[in-house]
Design a protein around this nucleic acid. Sequence first.
DNA 1: ACATCATATGCATATAGGTGCATATGCATA
DNA 2: TATGCATATGCACCTATATGCATATGATGT
Lengths: 112, 112
Amino acid sequence: MHLDTFQTLADPTRRRVVDALCRGERQVNDIVDEVGIHQSGVSRHLRILHDAGFVAVRPDGQRRLYSLKPAPFREVDDWLAKYRGLWEARLDRFGAVLEARQKQRRTRTKER
Amino acid sequence: MHLDTFQTLADPTRRRVVDALCRGERQVNDIVDEVGIHQSGVSRHLRILHDAGFVAVRPDGQRRLYSLKPAPFREVDDWLAKYRGLWEARLDRFGAVLEARQKQRRTRTKER
DNA sequence: ACATCATATGCATATAGGTGCATATGCATA
DNA sequence: TATGCATATGCACCTATATGCATATGATGT
């Protein structure tokens, strides 16, 4: 099976793995040390991250070096864009976003 | 139990519920129509979203009007900030955004 | 009070997903 | 080839969670 971007991010341990890769390439055992679960678990998390497009692998001798890829982060960012108006109150140069939201707002509240 | 922000977003149906609220207040039955699962399911999703801080409720007669709250979105955005360097190579004309983001950065950044 | 509508919740069920252990695979070097 | 290190995977187990059904709760109007 193949988890989508958000499902992939749902597991805290997996986010720690992502965090461990935040500063550059790492081999599996480095991550094992950092997140504190069994090596097999880390391998599996990396597999899931790979399937979801979060990481690239590069063989280096007997090791495999994992690193982050941008695509799914961008996907989250895009998803977030829809909701930015919620907390970016002042519409400095984000007028377009809010405007778009206003346009399609329904009023269902009134009929009572 | 209480799901964290990312676990809350992991379920696709729940994201559809969030999406349904994207354009303003909605009552439960509206959401039922929109996402196509049983009413009890929607109520439960709304409860989870509420526990995670995604939604506010406001009674309106016999209905309850749900709406989005900004906090968890901001949390995702903050999390994302750490990885922005992955795909935002140059800060063309979104300097303002980055600036605003810096200002509200509340999670401590570990020593690099 | 009663009937009705809107929403929430207990229960049962099915499935998914995380974990460790043991083992397999793959690579490197003596 | 044989040995050892690094990583992946099959298996079993257990917990979490999404869902529908039936029912409870709560509010409104007659």
